[in-house]
Design a binder for these strands. Structure first.
Length: 817
DNA sequence: AGCACGCCGACT
DNA sequence: GTCGGCGTGCTC
C-alpha cells in the first residue's frame, strides 16, 4: 500500500494527455493538496517535469510501478478545486488537452528550467586523456557542470562526456531551477536610535564615508525609503548601502510588490440612479438573498447607465464578503470603466488584459490569490481569476466576438461563466444594448431572466439616424465617398464647435491595389489576400500576416505604369476630410495608430479634452467611450460588413450600427447619425435605423431556425493548416476517413452532416494552406460527435495525423473563414 | 515533447 | 567488429 496521487504532466504532447499516478513520500503526505504543482520524474530518463495534482487517491495498490514525487513545488495550490473541475470540463467540451486548459488558466511566469549536469562519481581506474582531464577539472571546480555549458566551452565535449560516463567516472543527472517572476520592493530604514544618528553621521564623516553619511542624513527625515529612490535622490550606490547594512546602521526589508500596470487618472463619478436602474439593481440584488436561478440579461440602450448598475451590484456582493468578476470586451478599449471601478473599489481591484506583460499578469493573479483583491476587471481570460467564493460575474457588451477565444482551447466565455456561477452559486449578468440573438432567444424561452433599461440615463432621446442611399447619390452625379447630406451634417456640427466621429471598419488608405491595364490585383506573398495600401508608410500591408512591402512602381504582371488604388480605409477618409475642412483637427484611431503601448488612451484623452474636432476610426471608436460633445456620428459604409459569407454578419452589422450611433448626443446636446449604405433595404440596416431590436431579432431568429444555425443547432469546425498543401489536403482527408470509419462502425450510413473537406474561404494565410471540415449536429448528438473528433484528432493523433500540419478544432466558431 | 532502445550502414 | 545515424514507441 502506497499513498498515491494522480497528476497531469506538463508537456505539450498529445500522447501524454492523461493522468499519471505517483507516490507521495512520507514527508510530503502532510502537505499534499489538490491543484498543487509538484515535480515528478518522468519518462525513461526520469527528467524532472512539472505536474499538477488532480486527484488524491490515498492508500492504494497498483499493478504497475509508480515513481515518487520529487518535491512539492509550491505549498499553496496553483489551481483551486473548482478550477480543476473547469479544466476537466473544458478538455471534454472544447476537445483539447489538459495542458491547453491549464495554460489558459494559469499565469505564465511560474515555470521550471531543466538542465542536465555532470557530477563526479568514481575516481578513474585508468589514466584519463588530456581532454578528459580538462572536463573533469571543470566539473571539479564547482562540484557539477551543466552539459550545455561544457559543450559550449569545449567543442568536442559531448563525445568526451559520454566516454567519461561509460567509464563510470562521471554521472549525468537532471537539475532544475524554479523560475519565479516575483517582484520585490526593498525599503531601507535606520535601525539605530534617533539620538545616535548624529554620532553615527560624525563617525562616518571621519571615516570619509560621505555618501553613507548623506544617506543616513536623508533617512533621518525619510525613514522607510524605497531603495531605488534612496539611490536616486542621495546618489548612494549599491556599495554605500551595503556597507551601511554591514555596520548595522540600516536594515533592508523585502516586500512583495505588485506591478500596477496603468496608472490612470481616477475620476469619481457618483451618479444618482434613475428608477429603471434602481429596479435593475434590486432585481439582481434579490439573487444574493434568494439564490441565483438563471442568468440575467441586462438589455439597456446605449447610454442607459449599465456600468452604474454593475457597480451597485458588485458593491452588494463585496459587502457580503464575496468576490466579483467584471468582464469587458478588451480592457485597453475601456479605460474609463476601469477608472470608475478604481474610484469605487480602490486597491481591491485586479486588472487583467492582453496589454500586460507576463510579469504584470502574474502580479495581478497573486494579488487575487492572496486575497488582496476581491474584484477582477478584465478581458475574457479574467474568467479564470483564482477566486474561491464568487458572488457575481458580469459580462459587459456580452455580444462581442472577443469573448470567444481564438486559441486552443477555443472557449466561449459566456458558457464558462455559467459553469463558474453554478459552481460558486453566483449570479451571472449579461449586459448589452444589442444582445446576441442566441442569448435573447434564451430570454424568450425563459431560460434566462431579462431586465430592460429603455431610457437613457440623462433622459435624452437617442440620436436621430438618417439613412442615406449611396446608389442614388451616384445616380445624381456624386461619385465621392461622402454624400452631400453627410457633409452638411458634419459641417453643421463643426460650425457649432461640437465634435464629430466618423466610423469606417477598414484601416489603411485603400483596401486593394490593381492594374488599370491588365486587371492584376496585388496580393500578399504569404497569404491569398489582397494588399492594403497605406499612404503614410508609402507601402502596402497585408492585414492578415502583417507583411509589408514597398508600393511597386509598375504592375508586376504587365509592367505598365498603371497601378491604381481602389476601395477606402480610414487613412483615405482622413485625407478627404482634411481637404474639405483644412481648419479642423483630426485624430485617427485604428490598429495602426494604437500599436504603441498607451497610444490608445492617449488618443481618447486628447479627443475628450477637445484638442481635436473629428475622430476617425474603426471598431475601436464604437464602444464604451463617453464623449459629451459629440453630436455627429458618420458611418461611411454601413453595409460593408454585410456581404461576408458568414451567418453572423447580419447580427454583427446591426450591433455595430447601434453601438456607433450610441456615441452621438450623450450629454445635453442632441445628436444625429448619418448612415451611408449602398443597400439600404437590408433588414439589419432598416431595423438599426429605427432602434428596433425586436424587429431585427424576429427576422433573424426566423432565418436561424430555417437554416439550423445557433441557437437551433451547433457547428463544429476542423481546420487543418500547414506549409505543404498536399500534406494539408492529405491530412484533412485522413481525418474525414477516420471519422467516417468510426461513424460507420456505429451504424451511420448518411454523412451529409459533414461538409467538406474543402478549402477554407481564406485558403492561404501566413504561408499556410488551410482546409476545413464543417460539421453540423443535425441527426447526430453533439456530445457523441465531440467524442469521435477527440478520438481521431487527439487520442489517435500521432497515428493518424502528420507532424507538419496543425489541426484546429472550434465548436460554434464565430466565423468559418 | 523528449528520451531510450534498436536496427542498419560506414568506418577502424 | 563498433560507432553513431535516425526510425519507433513509451512515458505512472
Amino acid at each position: 500500500m502506497k499513498s498515491l496521487v494522480e497528476v497531469v504532466v506538463s508537456n505539450n504532447s498529445y500522447n501524454t494527455d492523461r493522468l499519471f499516478t505517483y507516490e507521495v513520500g512520507d514527508d510530503q503526505k502532510e502537505s499534499i493538496r489538490l491543484g498543487q504543482r509538484v515535480l515528478v520524474p518522468f519518462g525513461r530518463g526520469n527528467k524532472p517535469v512539472q505536474a499538477y495534482v488532480f486527484k488524491i487517491l490515498g492508500q492504494k495498490d497498483t499493478d504497475f510501478k509508480v515513481k515518487k514525487i520529487i518535491e512539492i513545488a509550491d505549498y499553496d495550490p496553483i489551481l483551486t478545486k473548482k478550477q480543476l473541475d473547469m479544466v476537466e470540463w473544458m478538455r471534454e467540451n472544447y476537445i483539447c488537452t489538459y495542458m491547453d486548459c491549464i495554460n489558459a488558466i494559469c499565469p505564465k511566469g511560474i515555470g521550471l528550467e531543466n538542465y542536465k549536469v555532470a557530477v563526479l562519481k568514481n575516481t578513474p581506474k585508468d589514466p584519463l586523456s588530456e581532454k578528459e582531464e580538462i572536463i573533469v577539472g571543470e566539473i571539479q571546480k564547482s562540484g557539477s557542470a551543466s552539459i550545455e555549458k561544457l559543450t559550449g566551452k569545449f567543442g568536442s565535449a559531448k563525445k568526451i562526456i559520454s566516454a567519461l560516463e561509460k567509464k563510470d567516472v562521471i554521472e549525468i543527472v537532471w537539475e532544475y531551477k524554479k523560475l519565479e517572476n516575483k517582484k520585490y520592493v526593498e525599503t531601507v530604514r535606520l535601525c539605530i536610535d534617533y539620538e545616535d544618528i548624529d554620532i553615527n553621521i560624525e563617525r562616518l564623516k571621519k571615516q570619509r564615508a560621505h555618501k553613507q553619511a548623506e544617506a543616513v542624513e536623508f533617512l533621518r527625515y525619510n525613514d522607510e525609503c524605497i531603495k531605488s529612490d534612496l539611490k536616486q535622490i542621495t546618489g548612494a550606490s549599491q556599495a554605500t548601502i551595503k556597507s551601511l547594512l554591514q555596520k548595522g546602521i540600516v536594515e533592508i526589508q523585502k516586500e512583495e510588490y505588485y506591478r500596477e500596470p496603468d496608472q490612470q487618472d481616477i475620476e469619481e463619478s457618483d451618479i444618482a440612479l434613475n428608477d429603471e436602474q434602481k429596479a435593475a439593481v434590486r432585481h439582481i440584488g434579490k439573487g444574493f438573498s434568494e439564490g441565483f436561478s438563471k442568468p440575467i440579461v441586462l438589455h439597456g440602450v446605449t447610454g442607459s447607465g449599465k456600468t452604474q448598475v454593475y457597480i451597485e451590484a458588485i458593491e452588494k456582493a463585496v459587502s457580503l464578503g464575496k468576490e466579483c468578476i467584471m468582464l469587458v470586451p478588451e480592457i485597453a478599449l475601456t479605460p474609463q470603466t476601469v477608472s470608475r471601478f478604481k474610484a469605487r473599489f480602490g486597491e481591491g481591484i485586479a486588472v487583467i488584459h492582453s496589454g500586460l506583460s507576463a510579469g504584470e499578469k502574474y502580479d495581478q493573479w497573486r494579488k487575487m490569490k492572496k486575497g488582496h483583491a476581491n474584484v477582477c476587471i478584465g478581458a475574457r481570460s479574467a474568467i479564470f481569476s483564482p477566486f474561491e467564493n464568487i458572488g457575481i460575474i458580469i459580462i459587459d457588451e456580452f455580444h462581442e466576438s472577443s469573448y470567444k477565444s481564438e486559441m486552443s482551447p477555443k472557449y466561449d466565455t459566456i458558457e464558462l461563466s455559467k459553469i463558474m456561477c453554478n459552481m460558486h452559486g453566483a449570479g451571472l449578468v449579461l449586459g448589452s444594448a444589442t444582445p446576441s440573438v442566441k442569448e435573447y432567444y434564451m430570454c424568450k424561452t425563459g431560460e434566462y431572466d431579462i431586465i430592460r433599461l429603455e431610457k437613457r440615463a440623462n433622459n435624452k432621446l437617442p440620436p436621430k439616424i438618417e439613412l442615406i442611399d449611396m446608389k442614388r447619390e451616384i445616380d445624381s452625379g456624386n461619385r465621392g465617398i461622402f454624400s452631400r447630406r453627410f457633409l452638411k451634417l458634419l459641417g453643421d456640427a463643426l460650425e457649432r464647435k461640437e465634435q464629430a466621429m466618423i466610423f469606417l471598419n477598414r484601416r489603411g488608405y485603400s483596401n486593394f491595389v490593381y492594374c488599370a491595364e491588365c486587371g492584376f490585383v496585388l496580393k500578399c506573398k504569404r497569404c491569398d489576400i489582397s494588399m492594403t495600401y497605406h499612404k503614410d508608410i508609402g507601402g502596402v500591408k497585408c492585414h492578415y500576416c502583417g507583411h509589408k512591402e514597398k508600393m511597386p512602381q509598375a504592375c508586376p504582371e504587365c509592367g505598365e505604369n498603371a497601378l491604381e488604388t481602389g476601395g477606402m480605409g480610414t487613412q483615405r477618409v482622413v485625407d478627404e476630410i482634411k481637404n474639405m475642412y483644412p481648419q479642423s483637427h483630426i485624430l485617427r484611431m485604428d490598429r495602426d495608430t494604437t500599436s504603441r503601448k498607451g497610444a490608445h488612451s492617449h488618443i481618447i484623452q486628447k479627443f475628450r479634452r477637445k484638442e481635436a474636432d473629428i475622430l476617425i476610426g474603426t471598431q475601436m471608436i464604437s464602444k464604451g467611450h463617453d464623449f459629451p460633445d459629440v453630436t455627429f456620428v458618420g458611418v461611411v459604409s454601413a453595409d460593408a460588413t454585410l456581404n461576408y459569407p458568414d451567418y453572423k454578419s447580419s447580427e454583427k452589422t446591426f450591433q455595430l450600427i447601434t453601438q456607433v450611433s450610441g456615441r452621438a448626443g450623450r450629454a445635453s446636446l442632441p445628436g444625429v447619425v448619418a448612415l451611408q449604405a449602398h443597400d439600404t433595404t437590408h433588414y439589419s440596416i432598416q431595423h438599426a435605423k429605427d432602434y428596433d431590436y425586436e424587429g431585427f431579432y424576429d427576422k433573424e431568429i426566423r432565418l436561424r431556425k430555417t437554416f439550423g444555425y445557433e441557437p437551433f443547432g451547433n457547428i463544429l469546425s476542423i481546420v487543418v493548416s500547414g506549409r505543404n498543401k498536399s500534406s494539408v489536403m492529405n491530412n484533412i482527408y485522413k481525418i474525414h476517413e477516420g471519422m467516417t470509419y468510426v461513424l460507420a462502425k456505429k451504424g451511420f450510413e448518411d454523412f451529409s452532416f459533414i461538409m467538406g473537406p474543402s478549402e477554407c474561404p481564406m485558403a492561404f494565410i501566413n504561408m499556410k494552406h488551410r482546409w476545413q471540415m464543417v460539421i453540423r449536429d443535425s441527426g447526430i448528438d453533439i456530445e457523441f460527435l465531440k467524442k469521435i473528433v477527440r478520438f481521431v484528432c487527439i487520442t489517435k493523433r500521432s497515428k493518424i495525423i502528420d507532424e507538419d500540419v496543425n489541426v484546429s478544432i472550434d465548436i460554434n466558431p464565430s466565423s468559418i473563414m
